[in-house]
Every structure is written in C-alpha cells, then in structure tokens.
Amino acid sequence: MTDNSNLLAEQRRSLILEEVRRHGGVRVNELTRRLGVSDMTIRRDLDALARAGVLEKVHGGAVAADTARTHEPGFEAKSALEPSAKEEIARVAAALVAPGSAVALSGGTTTYALARYLIGIEELTVVTNSVPVSDVFEQARRRGDGAGATVVLTGGVRTPSDSLVGPVADRTIRSLRFDLLFLGVHGLSPRAGLSTPNIAEAETNRQFVESAGRVVVVADHTKWGVVGLSTFAELAEADTWVTDAGLPADVARAAREQLREVVVAPAG
C-alpha cells in the first residue's frame, strides 16, 4: 500500500478494499500511518465502504463482509485497541460505584480496565464472567491491596476473549441480582442494538442485563456502528453509555436519541 496523503477518497477506498481482500482485514491505526491521513478520515472511508456492503467495521478496523459478524479477537489483541480511551472510560465509570454495592462486570478489556479502579472501594461484591477481571481482584488480595471485594466468578466455557459463557454461567447469573452492571460490548448500533460475534456470549450478556438494576455500557467510540452476529439487547435497555472524547458530536446526538444517558469521559 502506498504512502500518499494526497490520494482522493476514491483512491484511498480502493486501496483499503484491496488490503482487506488481501489480508482479510485492516486496522485504523495502521491505515492512518500508511496513508498519511487522520483517524477520522479513515473511519469515514470505512463507513462508506461498509454502506456499500464490501466490508464490515469491527472494533479498531474492518474485515471482509463475509467474516465480520463472527470475527472475535482474543483478549490480548483487543487490549491493544484504544488503550487510552479505555482508561478514561474506566476512571469515569468507577465514580458510579458506591461502597457496599453489588456490581457485575461482563467480559471485555474495558471492564478489565475498570476493575483496577474498583479494588479500593469498600465492601463490594463483584460478579463477573471474566477471568482477567477476576484475576485483578485476586492479585490485589494476594498483595494485600484494596478493600478485599467478594468476587463471584460465574464458571462456564471460556471464549477467545477470556469470558465464561454457556449454561453454567447463565444459571449462576439468573440466580443473582446486582445494583449495577458494567457491560462491555462488541458493537452498538441503532439498528442492531448491543451485539457480539459469539452466540453463547450473547445469551450470557442477556442474563446479565435482566439481572441488573442499572445497565452501564462501557465502550469506546469505535464501537458505534459495529454489528456482531448476535444481538442481546436493544439500545434502550441500557441506562448509560460511558465512552471517550473521540465520540463525534453527530454520533453523540444520535446515541442520545435512543440511550437514556451518554457520558463522555474527558481526555486525560
């Protein structure tokens, strides 16, 4: 792929599509570096190509249209995407948690970032189906750090993103009630709602939503418009979306038409 910041939109999009077809997918940060244009320009290009049906957006980039809805990156791969945004979101989301609360954290790298901000809050009960999230509290306990939260790990079958899903996880979650759910998502869409590429994880997330007093989606701005294979909730079922300052103003307006509250974390 050539390095040329003066390419016309049509030329850029042709090169992007060629790259997707050759490698099966592209990442936004790589395209901005190689084409010498802004992050927002690349995202507009991907939006245009997605509308044309020749690729589909996924978190941090795009993949060929026939693989997008079932594409599930591993935990390490997802951790490398938008790390600063995840920290900003986690810091703001943690302020929603009161001492003594029963809090659920679904799987995801943003909920993992959030867990590190919760270890100092007194008398928490934490329900999670995320092995990495559970490890955050276990490591803090071994170090003698934090306030010693009670952690309930749901059990279940492990996914590529290190979440536990399936009947065991679903049954555990159904038996519990918690004040607040922090929900990581593969994508948010006005049409498809909250979605994931993993069908079993969709059912587990659905159980989380049904057991929560308040549902808070924690997801950076690149998740907007992304659609996974399986929808597990409508946007209106979420009470709050905590996202980062990269969210375009027009997207924020569109999101507020369907979500009760959109909280944009200030850039650090």
Score class of each variant (00 low, 15 high):
4 N>Y: 00
6 N>M: 04
19 E>G: 02
26 V>Y: 01
29 N>C: 00
31 L>C: 04
32 T>N: 06
37 V>C: 07
37 V>A: 05
40 M>I: 10
42 I>F: 06
44 R>G: 03
47 D>A: 13
48 A>L: 09
64 A>C: 07
64 A>R: 07
64 A>P: 00
70 T>W: 04
70 T>M: 01
75 F>E: 07
76 E>Q: 15
78 K>E: 06
82 E>R: 15
83 P>R: 11
84 S>V: 13
87 E>G: 12
88 E>H: 15
90 A>W: 01
92 V>Q: 15
97 V>I: 10
100 G>V: 05
105 L>W: 03
111 T>N: 03
112 Y>G: 10
120 G>K: 10
126 V>T: 12
126 V>E: 03
127 V>W: 01
128 T>P: 09
129 N>K: 03
130 S>W: 02
135 D>E: 11
136 V>D: 00
140 A>L: 01
141 R>P: 07
143 R>M: 01
144 G>T: 08
152 V>N: 10
155 G>W: 04
157 V>P: 07
160 P>W: 02
167 P>K: 04
171 R>M: 08
172 T>F: 08
175 S>D: 09
182 F>D: 12
182 F>S: 03
184 G>M: 00
184 G>C: 02
185 V>I: 14
186 H>E: 01
201 E>K: 05
211 S>K: 13
215 V>C: 03
216 V>S: 12
218 V>G: 14
224 W>C: 05
227 V>D: 02
228 G>P: 15
235 L>C: 03
236 A>F: 02
249 A>M: 10
250 D>H: 14
250 D>P: 04
253 R>Q: 13
253 R>F: 02
257 E>W: 12
257 E>R: 15
259 L>D: 11
260 R>A: 08
266 P>G: 11
